[in-house]
Design a protein around this nucleic acid. Structure first.
Length: 110
DNA sequence: ATTCTGACGTGGG
DNA sequence: CCCCACGCCAGAA
């Protein structure tokens, strides 16, 4: 069962470690895993993470701080609500003070 | 088996 | 600064 699924698992591990009120980007996770060019796969992994309630997918956005995946959630603005619920300011699907709430796995984990 | 698309990112014009 | 094209890899048609 561990062929490419391992990659997904790693993504989940990092995502789970995202602290409250913080966010990160797909590229940051991908880079941390060593697959910087496969940032897309991180997003794909998030899609699969839908089964894992332990994965705060709403805390993962693109490098722009834009809630690109908000349409994949149940509600229309569920993702934004979750983020705002954590103290993150979101406007027009865009995270405000992104630099402030950004969580870098390299800086915090490594 | 082939083609296209997609929760991204980077680079070039 | 804005727009376009490419790389990546996995899943769906």
């Amino acid at each position: 069962m561990e062929t490419s699924g391992n990659f997904f698992e790693k993504v989940y591990e990092v995502a789970k470690q995202i602290p409250f009120g913080r966010v990160t980007s797909y590229g940051a996770i991908a880079k941390y895993l060593g697959t910087a060019k496969s940032a897309r796969m991180v997003g794909w992994a998030m899609n699969a993470s839908h089964n894992n309630a332990d994965i705060p997918a709403h805390r993962v956005v693109n490098r722009n701080g834009l809630l690109t995946g908000k349409f994949h959630f149940d509600g229309t603005n569920l993702m934004q609500q979750l983020l705002e619920s954590e103290g993150i300011v979101v406007k027009e699907n865009q995270i405000q003070n992104f630099h402030t709430v950004f969580w870098d796995p390299f800086k915090e984990l490594d």
